[in-house]
Design a protein around this nucleic acid. Structure first.
Lengths: 134, 134
DNA sequence: ATCATTGCAAACACTTTGCATACGC
DNA sequence: GCGTATGCAAAGTGTTTGCAATGAT
């Protein structure tokens, strides 16, 4: 995905394509590792030498608001960001820390082992409105 | 559940029944609201006037290690603790902040509304070992 | 010239750590 | 008396906020 296509994509999401935003989008698009703000910052600061973490946070909030990314929050871990906004599950390896996308079709939550992923715990979090508040 | 029964329960889990631990267990047992460390502290400090948050954290770590509680980590929220360690889902109301237990049988993740719970987002987190690390 | 974006520094919330004191057997 | 539990204060981590500087049109 080249710069002008990213520019166009951001505009479709109603986001003004500044340099930081383009570079961050580019990084997310080409590195499907569900990076944290820190990982994004470290990956880009050599190229964008004035980049600050504040800008990364600002940008990720904006991207999340506009639906460009979804946020992933494993317990007691930094927030990570996923440019794949289609529905899927996440698997985090307790050993290497990598986060993987797991398609719905690949997993039956009742079972513990699928395709070499040794699932020790499953946490299902639903967010919405409870009967009292609807 | 009276003090001597709690004492006995803690011992079965290989935890020495100190006063703080008994009171914290008692609180968790009788208040199924998935409290945070802060909530536990505030609820007990009037009675246990020397209680510190450190002790709450120490105790919750110990309880989690021994399998007395499970921890619940919604994205960007404080850790909450659940004395119900049998498998179930969690639903957090975005309006009132309450966390509810949802039995497996009550929910079909593909649907969005069940028994008055208006589910806006579902996050499924699996933790374990990935194929590279097994 | 105006308005949005950026980025530093400080504040913040939650949690952990170091260490000295107190408690229980 | 010895080993564990407790609790204060400080440090640590990830994130947010206030505000001034910069950049784009």
């Amino acid at each position: 995905m080249n710069a002008s296509l990213i520019r166009q994509t951001l505009q479709e999401y109603d986001v003004k394509p500044s340099l930081s935003r383009i570079k961050i989008y580019d990084y997310l698009y080409n590195n499907r590792i569900h990076p944290s703000a820190e990982m994004i910052y470290k990956a880009l600061v050599d190229e964008l030498i004035t980049l600050s973490k504040t800008t990364v946070y600002n940008t990720m909030h904006l991207f999340a608001d506009k639906g460009i990314v979804r946020t992933i929050g494993f317990p007691n871990e930094e927030t990570r960001f996923d440019i794949n906004v289609t529905p899927h599950y996440h698997f985090k390896c307790r050993n290497c820390g990598n986060v993987y996308d797991i398609p719905y079709s690949k997993v039956d939550i009742e079972s513990s082992v699928r395709d070499g992923f040794d699932i020790e715990t499953v946490e299902v979090h639903m967010i919405g409105r409870c009967p009292k508040c609807s």
